[in-house]
Design a protein around this nucleic acid. Sequence first.
RNA 1: GUGGCUGUAGUUCAGUUGGAUAGAGCACCUGACUGUGGCUCAGGAUGUCGUGGGUUCGAGUCCCAUCAGCCACCCCA
Length: 430
Amino acid sequence: MEQIRSIKGTRDILPAEALRWQEIEEIIHDFMELHGYGEIRTPAFEQTNLFTRGVGAETDIVSKEMYSWVDQGGESLTLKPELTAPVVRAFIQHNLAGKAPINRLYYIDSLFRRERPQKGRQRQFHQFGIEAFGSPHPEQDAEVIAIAYKIWGVFGIDEITLHLNSIGSPEIRPEYIQTLRDALATHADKFCHTCNNRLKTNALRVFDCKSETCQYLLDEHAPMILDHITAEDREHFDRLCELLDGMGIAYRLNKKMVRGLDYYTRTTFEITSPVLGAQNSLCGGGRYDRLVEQLGGKKTPAIGFAAGIERLLLALSKKEQLQENPVADIYMITLGNASLIRSLSIADDLRREKGLRVIVETLRRSLKAQLREANRCGANYAVILGDNELVKNIALVKNMKDGEQLKIPLDELEEAFTIGTEHHHTADES
RNA sequence: GUGGCUGUAGUUCAGUUGGAUAGAGCACCUGACUGUGGCUCAGGAUGUCGUGGGUUCGAGUCCCAUCAGCCACCCCA
């Protein structure tokens, strides 16, 4: 029979790795709450047109990467390929703007894009991120960027680069794109053919080309959008730079960084890490002052970012090897029927009263095999309770580190592990 | 969607110009130690050689297709 496998681009996270995820999620929760952000969780799927309207029908994400289907009621639904649009939808739907002048939200979530998998790219993947609604001022940009910048240090990732740019207000864009096309028209034959296509359809994207010749030509001949923004845009950007300087946040002015989604206005930023390979972006974000309005809400300025958790893990794995962690403090070894019943209730007492992780044998193995198992799962103690011990009302408590073994009366067993617990924790912290 | 590389035991991999019963390390199990783990030693189990077809006296090896994985393009976190 054919084996059923997980879908291409999806994967299982097994216990040893899941522990890493739990640690990471905990760090994110703590860090965001430290900055006054509250968690938001939105549904796994939405109406398809939330994304066509919010992200832009012409973007790659919407035009060819969405998992969409028509449900039994005839409605077109889509697994979320992006998290800003759903958060904006929730913001509008629950009238958060009416409840407070400013809303700071964060999330940790799964998203889905039908792309060809490669290093750092899955079809179901995870992001954490924040969205701050309500403030049009550069200090809001500075707050969001500072969070995006500082959190990597908490994870122990130091080698990062913050790229910063402003693509100005949307009004200037048609005029700028025309200027760009005109400037590059005379060199069109030297650009690669994808760039020539981009110039016609989505001109800003030429800046993303990985070809060295194209990049060289852009440096030589392309007008930069940052040099064409309005005076107000410029003032906003300059003030943001001042604030970042003041916070000691190092950034690289990257005039060629234009972001892929339609909704960005003014500030855009990205954080890259050299350890990731071709997909070197850890985190990307920017301001989107028109999106709330565009999705039917009251005009509200906003800025946010999203960071890839798989990529964070990838950057982290260069530093630390994954290892099997101990899963139990005590392994209960049983030999015989009567002792099994007693062991089960003792195990429950130890879990409930002492908070110890206890596993009871369920394979009816030999004593030797059970001790091997105790060793394998990292238990500090094995409690041996066979029918021989049961008639004497004792248990043998074996310290797995030094091999020392004591006879303990069953009614003193819990107490014996009060000392054991302290032992365990001090050993852990050293 | 396009291109390149790779699929052999639980796992990491070896397998000669196509040749007999497909191997090794680690892991697992058993014993030495009849109810005492780790270390050591001795032994043991484990394979639709990704799948389907073809060439051949003979295919893990060559050819075609297909599926999966990885990497890159596209694009993005």
